[in-house]
Amino acid sequence: MTLSELAPGEFGIVKEFTDLEMSVKLMEMGCLPGEPVTVSRVAPLGDPIAINVSGYQLSLRKFEASTIILQ
């Protein structure tokens, strides 16, 4: 299951990434394996999404979220 499949309010734990380039950027922003993530909302036009991770709110596109595999 990937992060992009979660609905707002749902929660998961990051397991691994499918895209190296994206993973480097995401990890820098505190989105690392083992880290719990919650989808807090979806933008009015359906993309991007906002997630809660490492104690703050991060927005990313659905495509980027689809590179994050959850446990």
């Binding site: 380039e21 994206m22 950027k25 995401l26 922003m29 991007p48 906002a50 703050y56 709110q57 991060l58 927005s59 990313l60 596109r61 980027e64």
Partner: peptide, 11 residues
């Protein structure tokens, strides 16, 4: 390069 959009939503 590939475009991406990873951005903090500040409080």
């Amino acid at each position: 390069e590939r475009g991406y959009f990873i951005m903090e939503l500040p409080v």
